[in-house]
């Protein structure tokens, strides 16, 4: 369990995180979306004990993480800018990780390098960017930490690797209740992997939801009537957004789909269509309902 209470972090005059609160339960796969500079990496560096917060507390299983090796040995953070020891190869990095992470499995390491046809004895200088990314991911998975953080490492993995990483994370969730945090610019990268989704903006979490609940929370109604009407025609429906062109109205509605459909049908509309929203659309409207313009937040 990761508990962050009131974290604020400054870099000189820049407030990277502003009174951020969040609770991430065990075995959760937590997706964090946000634009550049929203504070995603800062947040990961704080909860992995690289930075010390200026204000607030961070507890991992009830223990503070900063300068606390007992806690930190459970955390593995795959950074956006990968680091390998100078002139080293995967084999050397595996030994290095093994010295830190007591669960490090050479068996898994060998199996994964085999699957991806990476030569563990070859200098990292000869690896392409994509291969380095694969190497870092393999090392992280083989280390079997309790807390696993991927900072945009998921963006742009090829589908085979992506699927494999997904599967490894799932089995770690089952076996050891591993908690995973994945950050990304893109909602779509996270949609199929995560169970919780949070939006980070200007140093704070502005929205958090169970990803499956998000899928059903809102839907779009297209409705038309012969007589002139406006949004006051629907007093007992929770509207998130209303737009009308001529006799056709588009309404974004929150609530029980079937009940609302039945209610609208009783009004004898000329046209009544219930349309699903994409996850991105749901996200946009949910954010708007909170008073944020989504377009400002995503690249």
């Amino acid at each position: 369990m990761i508990e962050a209470v009131g974290i604020t972090k400054y870099f000189e005059n820049f407030k990277a995180l502003n009174n951020l609160n969040c609770k991430i339960p065990d075995s959760c796969i937590y997706g964090l979306v946000g634009s550049n500079g929203a504070g995603k990496s800062t947040f990961l560096r704080l909860i992995s004990g690289v930075y010390k917060p200026d204000e607030g507390t961070i507890l991992m299983d009830g223990q503070p993480v900063y300068e606390n090796p007992d806690v930190k040995k459970n955390i593995l953070y795959v950074t956006d800018d990968l680091y390998f020891l100078p002139q080293s190869n995967m084999k050397r990095m595996a030994d290095f990780y093994h010295a830190i992470y007591e669960n490090f499995s050479y068996e898994k390491f060998n199996e994964l390098t085999e699957t991806f046809k990476l030569d563990p004895g070859k200098n990292f200088n000869t690896f392409s960017k994509g291969m380095r990314r694969q190497a870092a991911t393999i090392l992280a998975l083989a280390a079997k930490p309790r807390y696993l953080f991927f900072d945009e490492t998921f963006d742009g993995l090829d589908p085979v690797m992506r699927n494999l990483v997904k599967r490894c994370i799932y089995s770690d969730v089952l076996d050891r209740k591993t908690t995973t945090i994945i950050t990304s610019h893109s909602l779509r990268e996270l949609e199929d992997v995560c169970d919780q989704l949070a939006m980070l903006h200007k140093g704070g979490i502005v929205f958090e939801s169970d990803i499956q609940d998000l899928k059903t929370s809102l839907f779009k109604v297209q409705i038309a009537f012969g007589d002139p009407f406006d949004q006051n025609k629907f007093p007992d429906i929770e509207m998130v957004n209303y737009s009308q062109k001529g006799s056709v109205a588009n309404i974004i509605v929150r609530g029980d789909r079937d009940a609302i459909k039945a209610k609208l049908r009783l009004m004898n509309p000329l046209v009544l269509d219930i349309l699903p929203l994409t996850l991105e659309e749901v996200f946009i409207y949910e954010m708007e309902a909170l008073g944020y313009a989504f377009k400002d937040m995503i690249d």
Binding site: S27, C28, I29, R167, Y170, V173, L174, D195
Partner: peptide, 18 residues
């Protein structure tokens, strides 16, 4: 089991559990 179904369908075990 949750494990079997999660692996078979390639989906998040927390979702199967739910």
């Amino acid at each position: 089991s949750v494990r079997e179904l999660s692996i078979e369908l390639d989906i998040n075990p927390n979702t199967v559990q739910k």
